[in-house]
Design a protein around this nucleic acid. Sequence first.
DNA 1: ACTATATAGTGCGATATCGTACTTAAATCA
DNA 2: TGATTTAAGTACGATATCGCACTATATAGT
Lengths: 169, 169
Amino acid sequence: MDSDTRLLYFRLFNEIGIIAQLSRAMMDARLPGGLITPHFSVLNHLIRVEDGRTPLELARAFQVPKTTMTHTLSGLESQGLISVRPNPQDGRSKRVWITEAGRRFRDGAIEALDEDIAALAALVDREEVESLIGPLIEIRKILDAQRDRAKSTADASLGEAREDQGVSS
Amino acid sequence: MDSDTRLLYFRLFNEIGIIAQLSRAMMDARLPGGLITPHFSVLNHLIRVEDGRTPLELARAFQVPKTTMTHTLSGLESQGLISVRPNPQDGRSKRVWITEAGRRFRDGAIEALDEDIAALAALVDREEVESLIGPLIEIRKILDAQRDRAKSTADASLGEAREDQGVSS
DNA sequence: ACTATATAGTGCGATATCGTACTTAAATCA
DNA sequence: TGATTTAAGTACGATATCGCACTATATAGT
């Protein structure tokens, strides 16, 4: 692999990393109290996709370790934005339901973000965003598959490490 | 703003966030000991751009708060990978130099990552990556400018909060 | 020069993130 | 059905990230 090519891929991840950081900071600035982007994202997912998901499904959807999701969910639950109940189909598992307060919170956050999104939309064409999303999804899926492959080879020697990560969304 | 448009931009940030997370996890898995992606990124920057940068310049380059950069640098220094010395031009400031061990570490990390990059390059065309980078840089700059604008309006009432964040790269 | 303001860096506390190890329940299989 | 393996979730500890407050130095304004 020549070093130009290597640099190109590094730059891709570098830009993506910085955008992730900036967009997260943008959201965080609009969210009240102790709630930050991951909290909002989970609420949004529960509405966009469907609530009644299990914690593990959510962890997979966001590509975070299940311990991180446990932590995020406990924050949401302590604020009364979700309700976590046992899963009747599986005694090991739970199911996460969004509450009315959770819906209101999510709607309010979207409203608060609207001006930021509008400002961005004024400068970046819808078409450009649409054309980016396809390739990004493709890259995300490839990385995801690579991670799974690395995991399964590691599993042979190391046990379950990160067994909780899978494809999603 | 119609809700389809809003959803589109949310999805963009969602994909970018997940790719950032996956690529970071990929790097972390290749780095030894207590060193993780931010450590590598700083070393790489010190070589790619130039060493002798100040901590604040580095914080800006990576869009992290200066306290985070202090922390990252202290980790690198304790491993002997960088040397932080006073800045003769400014008594408040310091300058960061990469050591020989730092160079070796960075080169080794790149080598270790090579197979991951190669695997990705086999599945994602160079041209596709090249075509993504331009728009991503554009979006990064816009977000960056928005953040600066939000900061300066906030400054009027709130003081210095996050004064340390600026454009970079 | 003197004062006021802005800038660079750090100390500290709060919370987030993540890995490891554990508990409990389910699924597999003998 | 009993034993083994796999899966879901949590407890705990280590480190990362970040905001706020502070110190020290530099710069601007008078």
